[in-house]
Design a protein around this nucleic acid. Structure first.
Lengths: 245, 245
DNA sequence: GCAAAGTTGTGTATTTTTTACACATAAAAA
DNA sequence: TTTTTATGTGTAAAAAATACACAACTTTGC
């Protein structure tokens, strides 16, 4: 550090050096892919779109796009979802970055997977370009790129996550019956749960508000309706200490 | 698709298109940073190195480097660890990708964080360039770039992970006492645990092999030594169905 | 050799959580 | 009015988590 330089000039010099260094770095194309799970007709579905790459012309792919200069990954994920589906009130979580050198037939492209879970009825698709549609999870076949693997990893992530956080409530109507809630968990976890124990579990968590209304228009005895107590959940997130493997 | 083209020629054409597309993508410099946790003297430590960027000349940083052309992220992480520390028998897990546009003073650089936990005594540092050293977690101050945030996120990841998987056994000597095991858990989780219940818990998991030896050279009553039953653990990884929030 | 320091090893009672399981009731449809 | 279908509810048993105290063993210092 030359003594006659001002602090600001020195700082500028350091930044210049840093910039030169970064400019010498190799760089790679970076994309974001969104794995949007939705729930409808007691089935878990995932939002897919026909690949616009001719190479994969009959395959479905995830909603993805390139990340722009100086765009944060989170920002890119929300932008892509908005552009492709019109949705803008969805939470997305980053799951994992995929980097296999041959995952894209056009050369090296790295992608960061984001995941969400939402209520299909609250998010009617306004755009149907490229056959954008909700595909049922169990029947999802091959996909373009490594997108099947990405979906599988996001699905595992989701199954784990919904056991730790009550994600599910954004997926149901504001007022829902316990059966609807159970259907949701059964669909996502791909298990069947004991009805009485399931109800007891949720009752003991005390996160449901009994709104004293009944289901309408069901072809059987109607169930009570509940709302989710979001405030209470926010306050009571439990610290988890348990050795459990 | 022109009918007179062979299948191979058509395929080649599609790849050419895909390549042209990818070449038009913007690209970003990509690095990997390794957060290596280690355990020594009943303290959790993390491996840090003086930043070689003059801009951060008095700050510690993580072990990181640029990802090479056509290098998988996992591969890059193992390479970096090997180059900087000489270690080559460490498992690394990808944790998260960090993309804030100003995280690097030289311009946009995206980094993917990898994390591990290892036995410091099994991995004596052979290289000490740039003041590479094990820094105790609780006293870790500011770091270069956003590396403090990366460490914090990896630490949370680790705390959760060690409650789901018995990571800890790679951190102890092959033969260890229950006290050593408990110290490890207490250090990582930053809690204190009931000794009798801790022992009971591990006894009931039946993952420890009593090797019928005692500690040597301890200044108090010696404890029994155990080995971890890796085979049994591999077989019995439990499927986790529980709604727990 | 003896006392002090420090740590090991062990069991039980209590509470909490999980699991398995059956029947009367309500509404709609036939 | 009968059938279909799903709701709502309780208890007993088993398993897991928690709180807690004392005798035994080894080294160290006197």
């Amino acid at each position: 550090m030359k003594k006659h330089l001002t602090v600001a000039a020195h700082e500028e010099h350091l930044i210049k050096d840093a910039k030169a260094l970064v400019q010498a770095y190799p760089s790679v194309p970076l994309t974001v892919d969104c794995v949007i799970f939705g729930f409808e007709e007691n089935k878990l579905k995932v939002l897919v779109i026909k690949s616009d790459l001719e190479y994969y012309q009959n395959h479905y792919s995830l909603l993805g796009d390139i990340v722009k200069d100086n765009e944060e990954l989170d920002e890119a994920a929300y932008r892509i979802l908005k552009e492709r589906t019109g949705m803008n009130d969805v939470f997305l979580d980053q799951v994992r970055t995929f980097s296999h050198p041959n995952r894209h037939p056009g050369g090296r492209v790295i992608t960061v997977a984001y995941c969400s879970l939402l209520n299909i009825n609250h998010h009617q698709l306004k755009i149907h370009d490229n056959d954008l549609n909700w595909h049922s999870m169990p029947t999802l076949g091959d996909m373009a790129f490594d997108h099947k693997e990405i979906v599988d990893q996001c699905y595992s992530w989701l199954q784990k996550r919904i056991q730790e956080h009550p994600l599910g409530f954004n997926l149901l109507p504001e007022k829902f019956s316990l059966r609807e809630l159970q259907n949701l968990y059964e669909a996502i976890l791909a298990v069947s749960l004991d009805r009485r124990n399931f109800r007891k579990k949720f009752a003991s968590m005390d996160l449901l508000i009994d709104i004293d209304e009944m289901e309408q228009d069901v072809p059987h005895r109607p169930g009570k309706l509940y709302k989710f107590n979001f405030e209470k959940y926010e306050k009571s997130k439990r610290k988890w200490i348990g050795i459990d493997f």
